[in-house]
Design a protein around this nucleic acid. Structure first.
Lengths: 116, 116
DNA sequence: CGAAACAACTCTGCTTTACAGAGTATCCGA
DNA sequence: TCGGATACTCTGTAAAGCAGAGTTGTTTCG
């Protein structure tokens, strides 16, 4: 029996804020932490914690610039992060593929038990 | 500014096992608890806890049959549950819509900061 | 050079959650 | 009536989210 798609879901990725971060980063070379904070509307410490977790998982990388202008922290998604995000999307697509509700109502209302 | 799609994500729904339950139920009239347990491969108590949470949120409803055959608990998704699942899918689609990685690589590698 | 402003990290405490495992009640068939 | 199965409940543990305060370092302005 094929394992259910929910087991392909990566807990490091599958979380509101984390998904938001990765999705935001996925099309960019890099983004300013301030930018993430305002677009995702999360608190300072909270964002920092998530970025730390993502970095520990190797999904994003941070770099700092200082000099002219303000001190700034840049975040970029890593190749591993891109892969993880893509896998997450695939898993969700497979998981939600069984949802007929996308287009309409349940075509034939079946019932399912173990010993049918 | 438009609020980011991550805020449309419902924490009652957006969770590995919960998502699996709702997706499994969405096309069915009702399903046996045993069936959910084996397909999702979760422990007894864990599944019970999730079903309880979903029921408290009004997203699923349970009913019991007894009589001939084994005692059996049936779970069905409610209209509210269908709606919540559909909203979740929509939110994910919007969230992941910005991911160019679906088809290919980032077209133009931009960088984004607050004051550009 | 010193003070204020700002960015970003860290730390702390609170609350919620997941999860496994043990125990328990109910109901069936033999 | 006993054994087995189903499913619920309870408990303890570990992890996670989150907000807010405090800290450090940097830039800009007087």
């Amino acid at each position: 029996m094929t394992p259910h798609p929910i087991h392909d879901i990566n807990d490091d990725v599958h979380q509101r804020v984390r998904l938001g971060i990765l999705a935001s980063l996925s099309g960019l070379a890099k983004a300013d932490v301030r930018h993430l904070k305002t677009t995702l509307d999360v608190t300072d410490g909270n964002l920092g914690r998530h970025l730390q977790a993502l970095e520990e998982a190797g999904l994003v990388a941070q770099s700092k610039t200082t000099g002219n202008g303000r001190p700034r922290t840049w975040v970029k998604i890593t190749a591993k992060g891109q892969r993880a995000l893509r896998d997450e999307i695939r898993a969700l697509q497979r998981l939600l593929g069984e949802v007929g509700a996308l287009s309409g109502q349940p075509e034939t209302a079946r019932e399912l038990s173990l010993d049918t």
